[in-house]
């Protein structure tokens, strides 16, 4: 451990805290990026548009089945969309829960299905923060 002390840096060094704060600041900026009320749910598979659902135009929830290597079922409601069922191995998409704000997204990577919320007039590029 005598040579170990020379080989390894100390637990904390003066620049560690600024690094952490910088990263947190970037995170805060990305989070505070303007989000609006979701109006349209954009559903894509393999990067191709499957459907654009105007949430204002539906009155009650319905299920949308998306076939593929890993079939998934979406549950679409006036106030948001969630993955109801998925045949992918990890079920991370279901655990995402319901998305409702503009800019939010739910993704099933194995099935390559994504749902994202758009706020109407705002361009898609905005979600990158």
């Amino acid at each position: 451990m005598e040579d170990g002390r020379k080989k390894w840096p100390a637990l904390l060094r003066p620049r560690d805290m600024p690094l952490a704060l910088l990263i947190l600041a970037v995170a805060a900026a990305a989070w505070l990026w303007p989000h609006g009320q979701a109006q349209v749910a954009v559903i894509e598979q393999d990067g191709k548009l499957l459907a654009r659902v105007e949430l204002a135009h539906i009155t009650q929830g319905y299920a949308m089945e998306i076939p593929g290597e890993y079939p998934v079922t979406l549950w679409i409601e006036p106030d948001g969309v969630c993955f109801q069922d998925a045949s992918c191995p990890d079920k991370l998409c279901i655990r995402t829960g319901k998305i409702s704000r503009a800019g939010e997204a739910a993704v099933c990577l194995p099935a390559r299905v994504s749902v994202r919320m758009e706020g109407g007039s705002r361009p898609v590029d905005g979600v990158t923060g």
Partner: peptide, 16 residues
């Protein structure tokens, strides 16, 4: 790359 740019929504959470 797999699912499109929508996943960048997670960026702030992942950074924190």
């Amino acid at each position: 790359c797999l699912a499109g740019g929508v996943v960048w929504y997670y960026l702030p959470f992942l950074l924190v």
